[in-house]
Computed example of a mutant assay.
Amino acid sequence: MTTHSISRGLCAAAAVTLLLSGCSSDSNTDAPTAGNQPASTGNGPIGDPADDNPAMPGDNLSALEAEINGTGAKTPAKVGETFKYTCHPQVPCDVDFTVTELTLGEACKYGTNDYGGSSDSTFGKLKPGEQYLQMSGEFIVNSAANGWTMAQEPFVIDADGYTTNASKSIDCRSGSAPLSDWATPVHVEEKAKLYGAWIVPEGITAVTIGNKKIDVTNL
């Protein structure tokens, strides 16, 4: 047998193999088995449009988890009451947070910073219709997915019911040890006494921290 004959024979065998393979694949197209059925990555059945939206952490939070993680309605809290601090569902933590003091007014508790300049300068001072929000608290980190966490900046609810930012005060001094700045990172199995000061509108009705809301109408 010549070399050309052998080559032609091999090519023919290869063609038959490919043809049979193609037929076998076609026969399984409409009847996927448990072994070759594609896995769903989303919330709906295979082929469902919801399959294009993969499930995210926190999609199936219970009511309690939703409250702790800040995805539910804000619940009331009081000064002096210890509550579970809000953590992001994808970076969970276990923190006991107690707001030990909350005041509204026109004087910084620990005095003001001196930035120099003329005595009539408005830099770092309250404007008409503004007041200081000052809070102290104890922040105890029992666990944290990334090894540490920190207190969130508060928001306030104004007299018209709108949620607005509380602007960090640059003129109020932060106090001395053992007080730490409100935004101090606290590591697992550690705790800190925090203090923060913000400038907020007069007439606010509540202060919110994560998933908690503290009523301030009587202050």
Score class of each variant (00 low, 15 high):
71 T>A: 11
204 I>Q: 11
77 A>N: 01
185 P>E: 04
200 V>F: 05
22 G>S: 08
42 G>C: 10
93 C>S: 09
13 A>C: 09
190 E>G: 01
115 Y>E: 03
153 E>H: 08
121 S>F: 01
190 E>C: 08
10 L>G: 05
55 A>E: 07
46 I>V: 08
137 G>H: 05
190 E>R: 14
95 V>R: 12
28 N>Q: 13
26 D>I: 15
127 K>W: 01
23 C>F: 08
34 A>F: 14
19 L>S: 11
144 A>W: 05
159 A>S: 15
146 N>E: 12
136 S>P: 01
170 I>K: 04
1 M>W: 11
14 A>S: 06
63 A>Y: 03
133 L>T: 06
69 N>T: 10
88 H>W: 12
204 I>S: 09
43 N>L: 13
171 D>P: 00
102 L>G: 07
106 E>K: 14
146 N>L: 13
35 G>R: 14
11 C>F: 13
140 I>V: 14
145 A>W: 08
206 A>G: 12
148 W>P: 00
55 A>R: 11
65 E>D: 13
1 M>Y: 13
19 L>Y: 02
211 N>S: 15
157 I>A: 04
182 W>H: 10
176 S>E: 00
29 T>S: 04
165 N>S: 13
5 S>I: 12
182 W>S: 09
184 T>P: 04
99 V>N: 09
114 D>S: 12
115 Y>Q: 03
109 K>F: 00
41 T>Q: 12
200 V>I: 14
86 T>G: 06
207 V>T: 02
130 E>T: 06
45 P>T: 05
13 A>I: 09
60 N>Q: 13
96 D>W: 05
111 G>H: 01
72 G>W: 10
51 D>R: 03
110 Y>S: 00
104 L>Q: 06
17 T>L: 15
203 G>L: 09
28 N>F: 07
73 A>C: 02
120 D>V: 11
35 G>D: 15
120 D>G: 12
60 N>C: 09
172 C>L: 04
215 D>A: 04
151 A>P: 05
101 E>M: 06
30 D>K: 11
112 T>C: 00
71 T>I: 08
153 E>Y: 08
157 I>D: 04
89 P>C: 06
46 I>A: 05
166 A>I: 08
115 Y>M: 09
61 L>S: 12
173 R>M: 02
2 T>M: 04
